[in-house]
């Protein structure tokens, strides 16, 4: 399993993603947004966090036109794994590869804070190794992470098991107090219909080393590694 970390102008968690992927033994390369590589079938494509194009116009709205997105789309449509973190999630929503939108935080302020997550769905390449009920400590850092989709779309996501993560309390309950940004139904991450594209606002690449405060985020990379050879 290899990984390709896409770098847009203004991306900043590419370095952190490279570090986290290295920690779990995944070989990773950087891909500049002007490139249009054909990603290998077994390549994990990572759209990291940051402020692509300075968040100008709207988060992710300009990056979705970057040439590399043709390659990302082709990879996703062919069933390849794509994960968008924070700004990467916003870009995937803007590109129509994931449903919904990320609005301004309900607090109207940027939030860099610890959050707790519970995997709401275990039958995916990104969550298969996460034990049911396990609470993961994974921090957020965003101003626009307030997940929105209309009621029908939300119901559809839940019915199809496409809500990957919810913000929760220490007991795994998706309470209002545990919701850091106003996301509907405490949604922190969603999957595509094909379940091979994940978008999430929290930063698993920051929760990758006990020295830095925890390594719960590695559960996502380890799920991906555990699924090598298995159907997505």
């Amino acid at each position: 399993m290899r990984a390709a970390v896409v770098v847009f102008p203004g991306t900043w968690s590419d370095r952190d993603c490279m570090y986290a992927l290295g920690r779990v033994g995944m070989e990773a390369r950087r891909v500049w947004h002007r490139e249009t590589p054909a990603f290998a079938r077994d390549e994990l494509v990572v759209l990291p966090g940051g402020f692509s194009y300075g968040d100008y116009l709207r988060c992710g709205a300009i990056a979705r036109f970057s040439p590399v997105m043709q390659s990302v789309r082709a990879h996703a449509e062919a069933g390849g794994l794509v994960i968008g973190i924070c700004n990467g999630f916003q870009i995937l929503c803007e590109a129509g590869l994931l449903p919904g939108a990320l609005m301004r935080n309900a607090s109207l302020q940027f939030r860099c804070a610890p959050t707790l997550l519970v995997a709401a769905e275990h039958a995916s390449a990104f969550t298969r190794s996460i034990a049911p009920g396990r609470v993961l400590a994974v921090p957020i850092s965003h101003g626009e992470g307030n997940y929105y989709a209309d009621t029908a779309a939300l119901d559809g996501l839940e019915r199809d098991g496409r809500v990957a993560f919810r913000y929760c309390d220490a007991e795994g309950r998706a309470t209002a107090e545990a919701n850091p940004n106003g996301s509907l139904r405490n949604i922190a991450g969603v999957l595509s219909a094909g379940r091979n594209v994940l978008g999430m606002m929290p930063h698993p690449e920051r929760a990758c080393d006990a020295l830095l405060g925890g390594e719960d985020g590695n559960a996502i990379w380890e799920s991906v590694l555990a699924g090598v050879g298995a159907p997505a």
Binding site: S13, D16, Y19, F110, C112, S141, R206, D209, L212
Partner: peptide, 16 residues
């Protein structure tokens, strides 16, 4: 104040 600042990016903040 500091919850409005990203104090973790670059993965090197050991004491926050």
């Amino acid at each position: 104040i500091y919850r409005q600042y990203d104090h973790q990016v670059l993965n090197q903040t050991v004491v926050r």
